[in-house]
Simulated scan of single mutants.
Amino acid sequence: MTAPTVSRILLTGFEPFDQDPINPSWEVARALDGEVIAGGAVHALQMPCVFGAAIQALDEALAELQPALVICLGFAGGRSEITPERVAINIDDARIPDNAGKQPVDEAVVANAPAAYFSTLPIKAMVRNMRDMGVPASVSNTAGTFVCNHIFYALMHRLSRRAAPGVRGGFIHTPVLPGQVASQPGMDLDLQIKGIREAIRTAMTVHQDLRENAGQLY
């Protein structure tokens, strides 16, 4: 009997940056590396927190793995929930330098490309399912203008132009770990892993997102 085909899931997290010794997004990704979730095998990749180099690493992984699902993770200080991002915008505007000292201002991620792309993940269903499991989560409408948005936009631009349709992708921000940043909210690593595992399961099994309010006034 032929063994069932297992899809590949690319799950990325960033290396530490801005003098932080740890990046929760990579700790979550590597904890899930090798797991099979809803018929998909997770392949974790640590991304450089560097403009341009992150896109090169993404391109190499897409070519090698030919994944059915791509979820990029990053961490967002000040957030206490796991936040799937709704939209990526075509702008690099760095408040701080990246790990290579680059600090672009008002530069396009991809020249002569659309202003924005929406995630193709079922972000509202992901949030609902994570909450049902006791994991704080909400939809975010801004991925910032640093390397997180940079790789999110690059991913969606590439998926929009791929010859093979049906590959879904998007970006999720995770909180910092408790005690990582003084006076900032955090979430235990085990709870973050639980939430992202459920987000992946949802992305692999839910093909039509929920239609419910997840808007914000500001």
Rank of each mutant, 00 (worst) to 15 (best):
A63I: 04
P136I: 09
C148R: 04
D20Q: 15
D132Q: 14
V135G: 04
I9M: 05
N90Y: 02
E60K: 12
H207S: 12
R211T: 04
L155C: 07
C49H: 13
G169Q: 09
D98V: 04
R201V: 10
M187A: 08
T2A: 12
M47I: 12
K194N: 01
A113E: 01
R197V: 03
D59Q: 07
L121A: 10
P67I: 10
R131D: 07
A143Y: 01
R128W: 07
N23F: 09
I151A: 10
G166A: 08
N129C: 04
N149G: 08
L159K: 11
G101D: 02
V110E: 04
T142G: 07
F171D: 07
A116Y: 09
S160T: 04
A111F: 02
G169R: 07
G39S: 02
V105T: 14
I71H: 07
D209W: 10
M130Q: 14
G134M: 02
V70L: 00
I71W: 06
P175H: 04
P84T: 00
L177N: 04
V181N: 01
F14Q: 09
G13W: 11
K124P: 04
R197H: 08
V167Q: 14
D209I: 11
I55T: 14
E212M: 12
A116S: 15
Y153N: 05
M130I: 11
T145I: 08
A68N: 10
A182I: 03
V50C: 00
L159C: 07
A111Y: 01
P185Y: 00
F171A: 06
G215A: 08
T5W: 02
L210I: 06
Y218V: 13
A125P: 13
L45E: 03
E198P: 00
Q208K: 13
P185I: 05
M1P: 08
P178M: 06
I22S: 08
A164S: 14
L10I: 10
A41W: 14
R197N: 03
H150G: 01
H150R: 02
L159N: 10
P48T: 14
L217N: 09
I71D: 06
A203F: 08
I22F: 00
G186D: 04
N90C: 03
I71A: 05
V87A: 13
T12K: 01
P67F: 06
Q103L: 00
G77T: 03
S80T: 04
P4M: 11
A137M: 14
M156I: 03
T2Q: 11
R197S: 07
D20L: 15
A163P: 08
F171N: 05
A61F: 11
I82P: 12
Q192S: 01
R8T: 15
P114E: 05
T205H: 02
G169I: 09
L210T: 03
A38L: 11
R211M: 01
M1N: 03
R162P: 06
A100L: 05
Q192V: 05
H150P: 00
Y218F: 12
L11V: 07
A68E: 15
S119V: 11
L32W: 10
G74T: 07
A41I: 12
L155M: 09
V50I: 13
A63N: 11
G34W: 08
V28D: 00
L62H: 11
A115N: 03
F146W: 13
L191N: 03
Y117R: 00
L121R: 04
D132N: 14
H207V: 05
A115F: 06
C148Y: 10
I91C: 15
Q208C: 06
I193C: 09
Q19H: 13
I9A: 06
A199P: 03
M130E: 12
